[in-house]
Nucleic acid binder design. Structure first.
Length: 852
RNA sequence: GCCCGCGUGGUGGAAUGGUAGACACAGAAGACUUAAAAUCUUUAGGCCGAAAGGCCGUGCCGGUUCGAAUCCGGCCGCGGGCACCA
């Protein structure tokens, strides 16, 4: 007898797979293709359990599809540009490039022992010049196609470090390093015209049936289509050129309740006024001390300042409304100016209360009388209300109806026009940072802004840079900055902004189809492999990454880099949950929290201590993070139990879309189970039991059911249920008194069913039982439908909705017969005690409900 | 603040309009063992009961239905996103 020793067997099978080259993706015209992709990782240097879970899910699908006869593409790469590399350079010295490539090497080494069926020959990093050079080529094509432009936009400016900050680098309105109050500052930046595609990106969501409903809903809300009225207020007392203020409203039905006009602090009128009015200048400056995030803006106290300008109501030019500058009006949405109707908008209500503005009701709830409001009355647009202003007599209508009438009325009278607006803004891709893809553009004194000549690509990042001072090293690098204009040959200046890393991740899926090509893609490869059949990643990417990718695929199609079928690049999407763990905390002498690694904790049922007996506070589970030290190193688990145990555990118990709790005991239990399966297989090879018709038939039937259920569960991404079924099947097989031949067949099937989750163990068992070749190349088993049905079924009987008895009857018993059996049932008779029966509801194969 | 989810035994979860708690973890009892580990067997939502059985129970409140963890309305709690984190 030998033992289950994954440390011996796992490397052996990994070498066997490599030698057979079975994970190398090949265009095979004789097979249907299947492209499975997990969101590629940022090379932080260490893999974590979240990665293990993410890649194991993809691997289960990849191996299952390969066994099911598909030609599978399952690649891996690195989302390698971004701030952490620059931060590391600033903190520890060194170069972002060295840091990144060394992290990639480390992470690759940590991933290989997991035994993932990845085609490593296609690996690339987005910081490879071969990759970002092609991205630059596409940028130039997209520029020519009119998809890119420049405009002014706000950034977070750290006035002490003299540098632009990312939103996450702004903490409570201050720069994370300098502590200085952050200001909003305007810079000229590069934009993709994603808003040209607002309507299409929204409409196309309807066809993404294999995407989670919630992701589609989140994207739809993000795009934010609205129908409204755009019109202008005439003004009095405004500076020259501002005799009209354009506003946009989705509730033109409330125009009769308008009590003020408010403009954004970034509105041209506000900018004009701040030049000559110190009070306004101070207020606007104060507004700009909020960082650029919408969250900060929304949470800030709502403030305004009266400009002294008056707006004339379009229906009555004797009706004057004060014009405020208000900190909650976004310049990016609509026209950057609104009118406020306090009676029917909570924010306007609070604003009006604060500044003592009139609150005039336009409509009231049915069956009520006009009375002073304590909060805004905001019914659904579809709800019928009583309009008390704007009509000769009160009229009962829905908001929707009156909105449409109001738009029509304003259009007829030349007051304004109905417009469809989107919340989605153009995609600003300029970053004032070094470690990103350089924007391939040159600034020439005579020619202006000129795209680089494609022959000069890639525009590589210079290696000789330092990070000892804040700001963008490219800006300081005079020899890199100086270049010649591709148009006129004069001396020119290179663009020093680099691209948002979301650009890098918006097309890597396409690059994987031809990763070494000297063009961004190759038509034959893209035609064969696209689209991604199954995309897997975190829900945190539900909006930005996925929306940008959907846009970029369209832009790539427009510029000839992807076929028309690929404008929606991801056929199916699955969003997995996080891996969580308890947090262990003690407190140091100064009262500061000290966190401890799980491996340093002795965990009892009710409490936890350190090795020296110190009590440790146990904080409920949260996402694994370095700062809280609630991390488990996958390598340690692999060393102790093997990769299959880690893979099995992350797939068991929790449904994949939900967070899963990592527990040491759970990991151990997974190992125990795998060892048990191994032992049962081993026993089968050492015994020789005779056939037994009844027991053999029962096991054969159980095997067919296991095949059926595990297959369906994998198809539905219900890996936890597939595993539960495999536990059950293990118990059945272990307790079975069937003959050795039948048991051997059952165990071989078990190996196949387990192979997507625990590929090494499956190969081991497959070999033990004399299977041909590699189980990784064996065709997926199928179940004989005749074995899946039962002759007899047990049905519960309810009396008035409460379960009181059950009966076991032949599966094909007709309803009328079932009723007779139920009424004759001893427990039913006893329970009814003569009460007459009104109805019997028989749900075939499910339940019987007797009503009295 | 706005948008989107989630909430079931001591724990992870199963059941997505039809027997609530499959499967597993931790627990308890037993077998084997000099002992421990490993393994195997049994047990297990709560309350009442010797048992048969009964009552209660899916975050909270209300509704629809013969029947609700599941559908609807309102609330509470937790998580994700909010355009320069990736």
């Amino acid at each position: 007898m030998s033992r289950y020793e994954p440390s011996q067997t796992e490397p052996k099978w990994q070498a066997a797979w490599d030698a057979a080259g079975i994970f190398t993706a090949r265009r095979d015209p004789t097979k249907p293709k299947y492209y499975v992709l997990e969101m590629f990782p940022y090379p932080s240097g260490r893999i974590h359990m979240g990665h293990v879970r993410n890649y194991t899910m993809g691997d289960v699908i990849a191996r299952y599809k390969a066994a099911s006869g598909f030609s599978v593409l399952h690649p891996m790469g690195w989302d390698a540009f971004g701030m952490p590399a620059e931060n590391a350079a600033m903190e520890r010295g060194g170069h972002p490039k060295d840091w990144t490539y060394s992290n990639i090497a480390d992470m690759r080494n940590q991933m290989k022992p997991l035994g993932l069926s990845i085609d490593w020959s296609r690996e690339f990093a987005t910081c490879d010049p071969e990759y970002y050079g092609q991205q630059q080529a596409m940028f130039i094509d997209m520029m020519e196609a009119g998809l890119i432009y420049r405009k002014n936009a706000m950034v977070n400016w750290d006035p002490v470090d003299m540098t632009v900050l990312a939103n996450e680098q702004v903490i409570d309105g201050r720069g994370w390093r300098s502590g200085a109050l952050v200001e909003r500052r305007e810079l000229t930046q590069w934009f993709f015209r994603i808003s040209n595609y607002s309507s299409e990106l929204l409409k196309a969501l309807d066809a993404l049936n294999d995407w989670p409903h919630k992701v589609r809903l989140m994207q739809a809300n993000w795009i934010g289509k609205s129908r409204g009225l755009q019109f202008a207020f005439s003004t009095t007392g405004a500076p020259e050129g501002f005799d009209r203020i354009e506003v946009y409203t989705t509730r033109p039905d409330t125009l009769h309740g308008a009590s003020f006009v408010a403009i954004s602090p970034d509105h041209p009128l506000a900018k004009q006024l701040e030049r000559h009015n110190p009070a306004i200048a101070e207020f606007v400056a104060e507004c700009r001390r909020i960082d650029t995030s919408e969250e900060a803006l929304e949470k800030a106290e709502k403030n305004g300042i009266d400009t002294g300008i008056r707006a004339l109501h379009p229906f009555d030019d004797t009706w004057e409304l004060p014009v405020y500058i208000a900190n909650f009006i976004l310049m990016d949405y609509g026209t950057g100016a609104i009118f406020g109707c306090p009676a029917h908008d909570q924010r306007d209500f609070e604003f009006a209360t604060k500044y003592n503005l009139p609150i005039k009701q336009v409509f009231i709830a049915l069956g009520t009388k006009e009375a002073p409001l304590s909060e805004a009355y905001v019914p659904m647009k579809s709800e019928r209300v009583c309009y008390i202003r704007g009509f000769p007599q009160p009229e009962i209508k829905t908001g929707q109806e009156v909105i449409e009438e109001a738009i029509a009325h304003c259009e007829e009278n030349g007051i304004g026009r109905g417009v469809t607006n989107y919340r989605l803004r153009d995609w600003g891709i300029s970053r004032q940072r070094y470690w990103g893809c350089p924007i391939p553009v040159v600034h020439c004194a005579t020619c202006g802004v000129v795209a680089e000549d494609k022959a000069n690509l890639p525009i590589c990042l210079p290696d000789d840079v330092t990070f000892d001072q804040p700001g963008n090293p490219l800006d300081r690098h005079s020899t890199w900055r100086n270049c010649t204009c591709p148009k006129c040959g004069a001396t020119a200046r290179r663009e020093t902004d680099t691209m948002d890393t979301f650009v890098d991740s918006s097309w890597y899926y396409a690059r994987f189809t031809a990763p070494r090509a000297t063009t961004p893609t190759i038509a034959e490869d893209a035609d064969y492999w696209m689209n991604v059949d199954q995309y897997i990643g975190g829900i945190e990417h539900a909006i930005l990454h996925l929306l940008y990718s959907r846009f970029f695929a369209r832009a790539m199609h427009k510029t000839g880099h992807l076929p028309a079928k690929s404008i929606e690049p991801f056929n199916a999407l699955f969003t997995q949950g996080m891996v969580t763990h308890e947090i262990y905390k003690t407190t140091d002498a100064n009262g500061r929290p000290v966190y401890h690694l799980p491996e340093d904790i002795i965990r009892n049922e009710s409490d936890a201590t350190l090795a020296d007996g110190t009590k440790v506070e146990v904080i409920p589970s949260a996402k694994m993070s370095k700062s809280k030290k609630n991390v488990v190193d996958p390598l340690k688990i692999i060393t102790e139990f093997g990769a299959d145990t880690a893979r099995w555990f992350v797939m068991s118990d929790s449904p994949p879309e939900r967070d899963m709790e990592w527990t040491a005991s759970g990991a151990k239990a997974a190992y125990k189970h795998l060892a048990r399966v191994w032992r049962i297989a081993d026993e089968i090879t050492h015994t020789n039991a005779n056939a037994n018709a009844t027991n053999d038939a029962a096991l054969t039937k159980a095997t067919a059911k296991a095949v059926d259920e595990v297959t369906r569960n994998i198809d539905n991404f219900a890996f936890n249920k597939a595993i539960a079924k495999l536990y059950e099947f293990t118990n059945t097989l272990s307790n079975s008194a069937a003959g050795t031949t039948t048991k051997r067949t059952a165990m071989q099937t078990m190996a196949q069913l387990m192979s997507p989750m625990t590929p090494h163990l499956a190969e081991e068992i497959w070999q033990m039982l004399g299977g041909t070749g590699l189980v990784a190349q064996a065709p997926w088993p199928s179940a004989d439908p005749a074995l899946l049905t039962d002759d007899e079924i047990t049905l519960p009987i309810q009396i008035n909705g409460k379960r009181r008895a059950e009966i076991t009857i032949p599966a094909n018993t007709p309803k009328s017969e079932v009723e007779k059996i139920v009424l004759a049932n001893e427990s039913v008779v006893k329970f009814l005690a003569g009460t007459p029966v009104k109805t019997i509801i028989v749900v075939s194969g499910r339940i019987i409900n007797v009503l009295t």
